[in-house]
């Protein structure tokens, strides 16, 4: 069976469009990063500090009523979230409203009194002091930095400058795009999300490398035709494999997303979208960048040659 037969799609020719699209995505991602740095994004309490309690009620609880109840008890800043299945409610209180004492207990008490007759079970409760959040933030920044550096160093060793640059840019693009997605969807930026981002950063290279390997092979074979057509030919040749390698990982991640349960729902979402983004960028971002660089260096050599002729 063959899903993708011989294709001749002009991927490279569409680079202006994809560069604009990705440019916008990256800008949103940058805004997301600034907001994360300012703690203005939807930060998980593992970074911001605070309390989160997940309650499983016997009967449905209207969100507005719960919100009003919290507001009456000076917990108006609390973030309420309904979980699709069951009558579950996730209540998050940031450190700003963290009083002395036990916040989780306060929340439990409030709901016990506010909804008498509607029993609930505390499924999970998390309290994180601000000092831990700050330490975690610092550790995470280091982790992201170190792994990015490791990947860049590996690429630098494996490829020449032009390919290396293309791979790094497309990896950073994927990271930005994932941040942009979570920022726009207002999903929680927590430790698991960062884990997913780093995993995809490593994974994204696989796709890029598959395409690059073929481009290099074809460049070395000195095929006739313009550089643009060699690039296009290479991408088309490996299109089937790029898509199918992603497809199997995508299927696995998708089943996590659909059936893995609420705890890793967002984590799986990050993985699913990351796989898609990584595949897109290996075709539409990494290769065109290398092409631009190759052309520039070609032009430079030509100019030099002309200068020498003169």
């Amino acid at each position: 069976m063959q899903l993708i037969n011989k294709t001749a799609i002009d991927f490279i020719g569409k680079r202006n469009i994809t560069f604009i699209i990705s440019g916008i995505i990256v800008i949103i991602g940058l805004i997301g990063i600034v907001q994360i740095a300012r703690n203005a994004a939807n930060m998980g309490i593992d970074f911001s500090g605070g309390t989160s309690v997940q309650l499983n009620f016997a009967q449905p609880v209207p969100l507005e009523k719960a919100r009003a109840l919290l507001a009456r008890n000076n917990l108006g800043e609390a973030n309420l979230q309904e979980i699709q299945e069951g009558n579950k409610l996730l209540i998050k209180v940031g450190k700003a409203s963290l009083m002395a004492g036990n916040n989780a207990d306060t929340i439990k008490e409030v709901f016990k009194k506010g909804f008498p007759g509607n029993d609930f079970v505390v499924e999970s409760s998390t309290e994180i002091g601000p000092s831990i959040g700050d330490k975690l933030k610092k550790d995470t920044l280091i982790a992201v930095g170190v792994s990015m550096l490791g990947i860049i160093m590996y690429i630098a060793w494996r490829f020449d400058f032009k390919f290396g640059f293309g791979a790094v840019v497309s990896t950073l693009h994927d990271v930005m795009a994932m941040i942009a997605l979570f920022y726009v969807l207002d999903k929680e930026i927590n430790l698991l999300f960062i884990t997913a981002v780093l995993t995809i950063a490593g994974y994204s290279l696989t796709d890029t490398v598959v395409v690059f390997d073929r481009i290099r092979e074809n460049l070395n074979r000195n095929l006739s035709g313009s550089m643009e057509s060699i690039f296009n030919k290479s991408i088309n040749e490996v299109l089937s494999r790029t898509v199918i390698t992603s497809l199997t990982t995508f299927l696995a991640a998708l089943s996590l997303f659909l059936f893995g349960g609420e705890v890793i729902h967002d984590f799986a979402l990050a993985l699913v979208s990351g796989v898609v983004i990584a595949t897109y960028s290996s075709i539409f971002i990494a290769s065109p960048i290398v092409l631009e660089l190759e052309r520039r260096s070609e032009r430079a050599t030509q100019q030099e040659a002309q200068l020498q002729k003169l």
Partner: peptide, 28 residues
């Protein structure tokens, strides 16, 4: 400075769902 408590019901739920997702992933 940190207190993470997970109830046994959520834990069991996570195991079941995780295994289910794994199984479906394998089948796919």
């Amino acid at each position: 400075i940190q207190n993470v408590t997970v109830g046994p019901s959520l834990g069991q739920d996570s195991i079941n769902k995780g295994l289910m997702a794994g199984l479906i992933g394998v089948v796919l």
